[in-house]
């Protein structure tokens, strides 16, 4: 003899299962978050198009995005496309020859004809002007990264929202940087932003 289930009990049962699965999902989601660690925002330098929005759209002023230098890739050029303005008068450290609007790159003579270029982070505003110059004429050793000692890790990164090349995404906090030469494009697991 089959037992009939009335409507009230059916709805009750459904609500119980829904609540149960919901709670289980919530616990699972929370556990996932605690076991996989935190996520932070970072720029993929191979996607970056040097659009300048890192300087203008970060909630911080100056931006938490800074130029970093992959020294193993650098050619230590005398005529550096990231340091010297196109049409510069002479290849020296005079302000009128510098490409950087805030003079955030230091040029240091190593030995003829090699020069080292160092980023002064306090002055860098993340405008990517040097990045574009270095990419167009050099090896692309200058590139942008979000500095995590400055970044406030917004829930929704204001720069990521306007990045034209979707170069900014969340990466595991255990591997917070994507320095050129230190990772292969696409090799790092990236969370959906």
């Amino acid at each position: 003899m089959s037992k009939r289930i009335d409507r009230r009990n059916f709805i009750r049962g459904c609500a119980r299962y829904t609540l149960g699965f919901g709670l289980a999902g919530l616990v699972g989601f929370t556990l996932k978050d605690t076991t996989t660690g935190e996520w932070v925002w970072q720029i993929d330098p191979f996607k970056c198009t040097s659009c300048g929005r890192c300087a203008t759209h970060c909630v911080l002023n100056p931006s938490a995005v800074k130029c970093v230098h992959a020294y193993p890739l650098c050619g230590y050029c005398d005529l550096c496309g990231g340091y010297l303005k196109p049409g510069h008068i002479s290849r020296d450290t005079a302000a009128e020859n510098m490409l950087c609007p805030t003079a955030a790159i230091e040029r240091k003579f190593i030995e003829e004809p090699y020069y080292e270029y160092k980023i002064i982070e306090d002055l860098c505003i993340g405008c990517a002007k040097c990045v574009e110059g270095c990419s167009a004429f050099g090896n692309g050793s200058l590139h942008l990264q979000i500095r995590h000692n400055l970044c406030v890790n917004c829930n929704e990164c204001a720069i990521a929202r306007v990045c034209p090349s979707d170069a900014i995404s969340r990466v595991p906090a255990s591997e917070p940087y994507k320095i050129k030469g230190g990772f292969e494009p696409g090799s790092q697991d990236v969370a959906e932003s």
Partner: peptide, 10 residues
């Protein structure tokens, strides 16, 4: 979007 005020141009 506004133009890039830091546009690198040759």
């Amino acid at each position: 979007r506004p133009d890039n005020p830091y546009q690198f141009s040759v």
